[in-house]
Amino acid sequence: MTTTLAPPQARAAKRPVRLFRNLMSKIALVPMILTALVIFVGGTAWTVVYSFTNSRLLPRLEFVGFDQYERLWSTARWIVSIQNLALYGFLSMILSLVIGFTLAALLDRKIRFEGAFRTIFLYPFALSFVVTGVAWQWILNPDFGLQNLVREWGWTSFTFNPLNDPDTVMFGLLIAGIWQGSGLIMCIMLAGLRGIDEDIWKAARVDGIGTVKTYVRIIIPMMRPVFVTALVLIASGIIKLYDLVVAQTNGGPGISSEVPAKYVIDYMFRAQNLGQGFAASTMMLVSVLIILVPWAYLEFGGKKRG
């Protein structure tokens, strides 16, 4: 059996045909491409450039080198915000995945009233972070919230006041964040579990593999793309953490619950120091790239080499 290769002239003639294939679809993509280039890429480049300037109320091209970054990393408020984001992000990723997957695994057992439970667990995600923050601010208030309720039941020594304690305030924020976001992760995990072939479960039962071991050794490795999607969604929410903090604590007590996004907003619109705000937002971008670039290289580069 012989294979006839098309001559170079024939291959060159096919290229224009491929170029004009689905032409209307490609034209429809032009506004989106221009938006991405002008607004996102252009805005990012503009922010990075002006982070090296002495811009105050209005942007101005008076370059000061790395002065804004030196000032940024010598500010206690920024250091605290980075530490808070790291703590919140680490715990939020782990707990959201564990709780979301556990709820999804329970619902996947074909329990009664599954639709009602699914609605109840997903409902908090329909609320804005402002509503969630205000609601949990009331729930965690020691005067008329959870602490007061338990004390009225007779446990007068019970103390639970995380939002007014600098050492535990981030855990109070974490409770509200997980309460709102776990439902979405549950739905994503449930969709992944429903995509698993039933024959895999039957084969595991025939081989005498327990349910927990089946999840750990078979189901979870098969759901790797689902976990990656969930991690991306959780990470994007962590980086943008702002509304919840403002609604619950407004960065307090003191600066104990500051986060980078709030630092950027405060310096750009309250302190009227655009240069410092641009420098902080650029550092947030760098932190995302430090995580995203190695992951993208390992995820896609390795596959291409293989």
Rank of each mutant, 00 (worst) to 15 (best):
L5W: 10
P7H: 12
P7L: 14
P16C: 07
L23N: 02
I27S: 08
L29I: 14
A36V: 15
A36Q: 10
V41K: 06
G43S: 11
V48R: 01
V49E: 02
Y50T: 00
T53W: 00
L58N: 13
R60W: 01
V64S: 03
V80D: 12
V80I: 14
L85Y: 02
Y88L: 15
Y88M: 12
S96W: 01
R109Q: 15
I111D: 03
F113M: 15
T119R: 14
F121Q: 04
F121Y: 13
L122H: 03
Y123N: 04
G133L: 06
V134C: 06
G145E: 00
L146T: 12
R151S: 06
W153L: 14
G154W: 02
T159Q: 15
P162N: 09
N164S: 13
T168L: 15
V169S: 04
M170N: 12
M170S: 08
M170W: 04
G177Y: 00
Q180A: 15
Q180K: 15
I185W: 11
I188Y: 00
A191H: 08
L193P: 00
I196R: 11
K202N: 12
A204V: 03
G208R: 03
Y215P: 00
M222K: 11
M222Q: 14
M223G: 11
M223A: 10
P225F: 01
V226P: 05
V228C: 04
L241P: 07
L244D: 05
Q248P: 08
G251L: 00
G254E: 11
S256F: 12
P260R: 05
I265N: 13
M268K: 11
R270V: 03
R270F: 11
L274Y: 00
F278P: 02
A279I: 06
A280F: 06
S281P: 03
S287F: 06
W295N: 06
K304F: 10
